[in-house]
Computed example of a mutant assay.
Amino acid sequence: MRTDDSGALDLSDGDPILAVETLLLTRDGRPGGWRRAIHRADDFKYVFASNR
């Protein structure tokens, strides 16, 4: 995490974070973009399920 990220989120060294990186694909499957999001871990609850 960058220093400006921790300052904007009011975090200290060692605080947990949620980092999400997403690769955006075009309709034909080529990479079309990328994004990175950093969030305070205490602001989120994620639940994952699998249909396998």
Rank of each mutant, 00 (worst) to 15 (best):
G33L: 06
Y46A: 12
L23P: 03
D4Y: 07
D42S: 14
S6D: 03
G32K: 06
E21H: 13
D10K: 14
P31W: 00
I38E: 01
T22Q: 12
R30Y: 13
G29H: 01
L25G: 01
R30K: 15
R52P: 10
T3G: 06
I17W: 04
D5G: 11
R52W: 05
T3N: 09
I17A: 05
T26E: 11
M1V: 10
R2W: 07
W34E: 13
W34T: 11
R27V: 04
D4S: 07
D28H: 08
K45A: 15
A8W: 11
G7S: 08
D28W: 03
G7F: 13
F44M: 10
S12I: 03
L18C: 04
V47P: 02
L23C: 05
P31K: 04
S6E: 05
G14S: 06
D15I: 02
L18D: 05
I38W: 02
R40C: 04
T26V: 03
R40K: 07
R30F: 06
R36F: 00
L24I: 10
D15R: 00
I38Q: 01
R27N: 15
A41N: 06
S6C: 07
L24H: 12
H39D: 09
R52Q: 12
T22F: 00
R40P: 01
A37L: 14
A19S: 09
L23H: 06
D5S: 08
R35Q: 03
A41P: 00
R36V: 02
L25H: 04
D5W: 13
S50F: 13
I17C: 01
G29R: 05
D43I: 09
E21I: 00
R52V: 08
N51K: 12
D28F: 01
R30E: 15
I38G: 04
R30D: 11
P16R: 01
K45R: 15
D13T: 05
L18I: 14
R36S: 13
N51S: 15
T22R: 10
W34L: 15
A19E: 07
D4Q: 10
G7A: 14
K45W: 11
G29A: 07
A37G: 10
D5L: 06
D28C: 04
V20S: 05
D42I: 11
A37C: 05
T3P: 05
L11V: 01
R2P: 02
D10N: 07
S50A: 13
R30P: 07
A37F: 08
M1P: 15
T26W: 00
W34Y: 15
F48V: 11
D43T: 08
L11T: 08
T22M: 03
Y46F: 03
A19N: 10
D42Y: 04
H39L: 14
A49I: 09
P31V: 02
R27H: 09
D4G: 01
G14V: 03
S12F: 06
F44C: 09
W34R: 12
D43A: 13
L23R: 12
T26K: 02
K45T: 15
D5P: 04
V20E: 12
I17S: 09
A37S: 14
D15S: 08
G32D: 05
K45F: 14
G33R: 00
R2C: 08
L9G: 03
F44T: 14
N51D: 14
R35F: 07
A41V: 05
D15M: 07
T26H: 08
G32V: 02
A8N: 11
D13Y: 00
L18Y: 03
M1D: 13
V47Q: 08
D10T: 07
